[in-house]
Simulated scan of single mutants.
Amino acid sequence: MQNTLLKEIFLSLSAVLLGFILLNAQAQAQTNRVAIVIDDMGYRYTDKHALTLPGAITYAFLPHTTYGKKLAKQANNDDHDVLIHIPMEAENRKKLGPGALTSNMNEDAIKKSLTASFAEIPFAIGINNHMGSYLTQLYQPMAWTMDFLKQHQLLFLDSKTSSRSKAEQAAIDYGVPVHSRHVFLDNELTDKYISQQFEQLINLSQKHQMAIAIAHPHPETIAALNKLIPTLKFHGIELVSLSSLYPAPHDNNLILSSD
């Protein structure tokens, strides 16, 4: 009888140990992840330095800029995710660059503009908004934008320049894969500020298993990120391409005509 009792205790302990092993394996499989998107690429020759950042950085290029097409090709050839950083109307009515979407454009004008932007960078996997604090609050232009993205199997990242943005809801309504930015890393170009924002990114990733940051190709930002990105592994966090945070694969070889 004693042997039977000991056997039952052993089996129970073995089951508990196996449970711990399985839970640990599951926790390790669910690695916390972050994506870092470098916006505003393409205007300056020095933007090329951002392409040297370590790891799976995602790059967002402004359409029809002096260096955008060339640098976007380089990023794509190096297996980085590429977005088109579409200028959108801001509340302060700040001047927009080429390829911009505004509230006075109808559906046809919005879709023609997006088509022209993708004709220049056809391998882009989707878009995020440059400025857009006004336009993203308007459901109708966002719906037209999402209809275009849905037709061409593209994704959307809401830069979240307005807390009242309707872009994410429009994306959901039209079945477009969507996420929103969680952290801006370099609203202030000091090492202290960028480090604090990076710490916030780490905390959000650990809390929610993923987080998305946006930064810009400033020399101060590049210098800070070169130091900070390697520290992610010490927190058990993986730097991943933006597309890997979305639920489905996307066609990176889409070719659109500007006709």
Score class of each variant (00 low, 15 high):
Ile110Leu: 14
Ile110His: 12
Ile110Asn: 09
Ile110Asp: 07
Lys111Trp: 02
Lys111Leu: 08
Lys112Gly: 08
Lys112Glu: 12
Lys112Gln: 14
Ser113Arg: 14
Leu114Ile: 11
Thr115Gly: 10
Thr115Lys: 14
Thr115Trp: 11
Ala116Gly: 11
Ser117Asp: 15
Phe118Pro: 04
Ala119Val: 10
Glu120Asp: 15
Glu120Thr: 01
Ile121Asp: 11
Pro122Lys: 05
Phe123Ser: 09
Ala124Ser: 13
Ala124Ile: 08
Ala124Asp: 06
Gly126Pro: 04
Gly126Glu: 06
Gly126Lys: 07
Gly126Leu: 05
Gly126Ile: 04
Gly126Arg: 02
Asn129Ile: 11
Met131Ser: 09
Met131Phe: 11
Gly132Trp: 02
Ser133Ala: 08
Ser133Phe: 09
Leu135Tyr: 10
Leu135Pro: 03
Leu135His: 13
Leu135Ile: 08
Leu135Lys: 12
Thr136Gln: 13
Thr136Val: 12
Gln137Phe: 11
Gln137Met: 15
Gln137Ala: 14
Leu138Asp: 14
Gln140Thr: 13
Gln140Gly: 06
Ala143Phe: 13
Ala143Thr: 11
Thr145Met: 12
Met146Phe: 01
Met146Ile: 02
Phe148Met: 03
Leu149Phe: 05
Lys150Thr: 03
Lys150Pro: 05
Lys150Trp: 05
Gln151Tyr: 05
Gln151Asp: 12
Gln151Trp: 08
Gln151Leu: 10
Leu155Thr: 07
Leu155His: 04
Leu155Pro: 02
Phe156Arg: 02
Leu157Cys: 09
Ser159Tyr: 06
Lys160Met: 13
Lys160Asn: 14
Ser162Leu: 10
Ser162His: 05
Ser163Asp: 14
Ser165Leu: 07
Ser165Asn: 07
Ala167Ser: 08
Ala167Asp: 03
Ala170Cys: 08
Ala171Gly: 04
Ile172Gly: 04
Ile172Val: 12
Gly175Ser: 02
Val176Pro: 00
Pro177Ile: 01
Val178Arg: 00
His179Gln: 12
Ser180Cys: 06
His182Asp: 15
His182Lys: 14
His182Ile: 11
His182Tyr: 13
Val183Cys: 01
Phe184Arg: 09
Phe184His: 13
Asp186Trp: 05
Asp186Pro: 06
Asn187Trp: 10
Glu188Asp: 07
Glu188Cys: 04
Glu188Thr: 07
Glu188Pro: 03
Thr190Tyr: 05
Thr190Glu: 08
Asp191Ala: 10
Asp191Met: 09
Lys192Val: 10
Ser195Cys: 04
Ser195Glu: 11
Ser195Arg: 08
Ser195Tyr: 04
Gln196Ile: 08
Gln196Thr: 09
Gln197Asn: 06
Gln197Ala: 03
Ile202Cys: 00
Ile202Ala: 00
Ile202Glu: 00
Leu204Ala: 05
Leu204Gly: 01
Ser205His: 00
Ser205Phe: 00
Gln209Glu: 01
Gln209Phe: 01
Met210Ser: 15
Met210Val: 01
Ile212Ala: 00
Ala213His: 02
Ile214Phe: 05
Ala215Gln: 08
His216Lys: 12
Pro217Thr: 11
Pro219Thr: 13
Glu220Gln: 15
Glu220Tyr: 03
Thr221Asp: 04
Thr221His: 02
Ala223Thr: 14
Ala223Ile: 09
Ala224Asn: 03
Ala224Leu: 01
Ala224Pro: 01
Asn226Tyr: 03
Asn226Ile: 02
Lys227Met: 02
Ile229Trp: 00
Ile229Ala: 01
Pro230Thr: 04
Thr231Trp: 01
Lys233Ser: 12
